[in-house]
Simulated assay, not measured.
Amino acid sequence: MRAFTQLLILADGRFPSGGHAHSGGLEAAVHHGRVRDLADLRAFLTGRLRTAGLVAGAFAAAACARPSTMDELEEELDARTPSPALRLATRRQGRSLIRAAQVVWPGEHVARAARAKVSQPVALGIVADAAGLVPGEAALISMYNSISGPASAAVRLLGLDPYQVHGMLAALGDECDETAREAAAFTRGPAADLPAASSPLLDVSAEDHATWEVRLFAS
C-alpha cells in the first residue's frame, strides 16, 4: 500500500508544489467572458484535458519511465510551448515541485532536476518515479491537476458553488482516466513522438495575462 499512499500525497492539492498560485489559463478566460458559469467551466476543462492536459500527462509519464532523459524531454516540451509566459510559469511550478521532493523523496534524479530547472510535467514524472509510482500513475496525477487547479480557481474567480464544481470534476472522471491512459501509451516511443496537441487560445491568453498589473493568479 505504500505506493498508493505516495500517489495520494503527490495528487493532494495541499502538497507544497505551488499549483495553488496558478489558474491554468482560467483567469484570462473569465476576464474575457469565455467562462461565465458551470457549463462554460466544464467546456474549458474538457478542452484542457484533450490539449494541454494530454501533452503534460504524456511528458509526465515519459519522465517517470525514463527520468535520465529529462534534458531531451525538456527540449521537446519547449518545442510544444510557444508562449514564453507559459514556459516561465511551468518552470516555476516545476521548481516548487522539485523543491518539495528534495525533502519528501530525495534522490539522484530529483537532485539533477533541481539543477536543470525542469518544467512542471517533467518534474512531476521525475518525482513520481522517486516516489515509487509508475508512468500511468504519473499521467493520471497530471491529468487530475490539469482540471482540478482551474476548477479550484473558478470557485474564487466566479463564486461558483464548490459542491457543484466538485460534482462536475467527478463527472469528468472517466474522461480524465481515458486521457491519462492515452498519454501513458506514448511512453513506448521516442520523445519526438510525444503528443503536440495545441491550444493556441491558451498561449495567446497567457501572453496577455502576463501583462496585467493586477491579477489573482500567476498564470
Score class of each variant (00 low, 15 high):
residue 120 Q to R: 13
residue 97 L to G: 04
residue 193 D to T: 11
residue 98 I to S: 01
residue 91 R to P: 03
residue 117 K to P: 08
residue 150 P to Q: 07
residue 49 L to M: 11
residue 65 A to N: 00
residue 217 F to A: 04
residue 210 A to S: 12
residue 23 S to R: 10
residue 186 F to N: 08
residue 64 C to I: 09
residue 66 R to E: 07
residue 186 F to I: 06
residue 44 F to H: 07
residue 45 L to C: 07
residue 34 R to V: 04
residue 119 S to T: 09
residue 116 A to G: 09
residue 138 A to F: 03
residue 23 S to F: 06
residue 74 E to I: 00
residue 23 S to W: 06
residue 147 I to E: 04
residue 213 E to R: 15
residue 80 R to K: 15
residue 141 I to T: 07
residue 69 T to H: 14
residue 23 S to P: 03
residue 175 E to C: 10
residue 206 A to R: 11
residue 192 A to Y: 12
residue 210 A to K: 09
residue 1 M to I: 10
residue 175 E to P: 08
residue 25 G to V: 05
residue 6 Q to R: 13
residue 161 D to M: 09
residue 206 A to Q: 09
residue 110 V to D: 02
residue 201 L to W: 15
residue 48 R to S: 15
residue 72 E to A: 13
residue 156 R to A: 07
residue 147 I to W: 03
residue 168 M to G: 01
residue 78 D to G: 09
residue 93 Q to F: 02
residue 204 V to K: 13
residue 180 A to F: 04
residue 125 G to C: 09
residue 52 A to E: 02
residue 119 S to W: 01
residue 149 G to A: 11
residue 115 R to K: 14
residue 26 L to P: 02
residue 192 A to I: 13
residue 178 E to A: 15
residue 44 F to N: 03
residue 170 A to H: 13
residue 11 A to L: 08
residue 106 P to W: 07
residue 79 A to T: 05
residue 159 G to E: 03
residue 39 A to R: 15
residue 78 D to Q: 14
residue 15 F to I: 05
residue 158 L to M: 11
residue 7 L to S: 01
residue 11 A to H: 07
